[in-house]
Design a protein around this nucleic acid. Structure first.
Lengths: 191, 191
DNA sequence: ATGCTACGATACAGACCTGTATCGTAGCGG
DNA sequence: CCGCTACGATACAGGTCTGTATCGTAGCAT
């Protein structure tokens, strides 16, 4: 009784995993169909094109990101604590074998043309994250919230890329410490 | 009298530009040959495979990186000054329309399998940069040179990715400030 | 039972990709 | 002058990719 998943769900999960691990261009629809055990026509019945499947994966990744973000930050008492909790959690994740970087950075790298749909979805996601950082930085009393937000943003994406390039043992083992230093420089030492 | 360049040089320059802008997988050998105005067989005479051309481009990028690094840091009086000068220069570059990210991060993303030759060259390059950061951090008197080096490393790659994703106007406009903050936290305020 | 829908499997079309084979030629050294 | 080498152009082989077309079937609702 393990599989009550619909063909569409099985397909999507397999596609998501393959895209994330091996890249969007490296994985073809035949591979996705074969690995998920469903017919190719069923794939195209649910997703009119491979690009639609990619976009669906990105939108799903966006949802998961924010669910995770809220889950992780909801127990922190202060905006400052929310920022630090996020970077603690991110450091833990990106030093894990399950991490293969960031789906949005990956798609933007593989499809660098800005008018490609997947690239646009990636930009939207990152801009939203950046805005959230700004909001939290402001609430945390940063002298220059936009500056702090951008600095944390660079750290985040650097950590994702470190994971994709080096695997689990990568320089992001010092991510959270860097975030803390930047926050303290802008907001003062912990209350 | 503009072109005393050999066919091999013309080819290489065109390939380099195309790989950097559009990605490795997106550009085919036919495109490279056509755009550089040389025959496809001439390409394969100089580079036995596309992968060899990619590796040649990466090795050349590595050389240019270090020439640039030495050029930029040689006038700084102290190791600390060298680190900050590098990040000043990097910030300037990645907020320029000529920047399309980092050739090494790009190749590692497009070819994530660690045994791919291009990925390995990229890892070597990044490890060397990381080691140089460590050396300078140590000479600059950082309390934990490895930690500071890794933190700066994350900033650097985050800045490259910000450039590839957003173009010239990106969060890396605050890169140098972040680097300075991290250095000061480890080495104390400027002497 | 029967008709309908979703599905799996397979074959196929057309494009593109890497890499090779072939041919004609221009330049250059002996 | 002559032969050799590097070159450009083109055609081609074999593979892979996206997307479509076709066929047979299993389940389900009426």
């Amino acid at each position: 009784m393990k599989t009550e998943a619909t063909p569409k769900e099985k397909l999507f999960q397999k596609a998501a995993r393959l895209f994330y691990r091996h890249g969007y261009r490296a994985i073809g629809v035949d591979t996705i169909a074969a690995e998920s055990g469903i017919g190719k026509m069923t794939l195209y019945r649910h997703y009119p094109s491979k690009d639609d499947l990619i976009v669906a994966y990105l939108k799903n990744s966006d949802e998961i990101f924010w669910e995770n973000f809220e889950q992780i930050t909801k127990n922190a008492a202060t905006p400052r604590g929310k920022l630090l909790a996020f970077f603690d959690s991110l450091q833990e994740y990106v030093t894990t074998p399950a991490c293969y970087g960031c789906p949005f950075l990956n798609v933007a790298t593989e499809y660098p043309e800005p008018d490609y749909t997947g690239h646009q979805v990636a930009i939207e996601h990152k801009q939203t994250v950046r805005a959230r950082f700004r909001q939290l930085a402001k609430e945390a009393g940063a002298r220059e919230p936009e500056v702090l937000a951008d600095q944390l943003f660079l750290l985040m994406d650097g950590a994702y890329m470190a994971s994709r390039m080096f695997g689990a043992k990568n320089p992001a083992q010092n991510l959270a410490g860097a975030a803390r230093t930047l926050v303290e420089a802008q907001c003062g030492p912990a209350e």
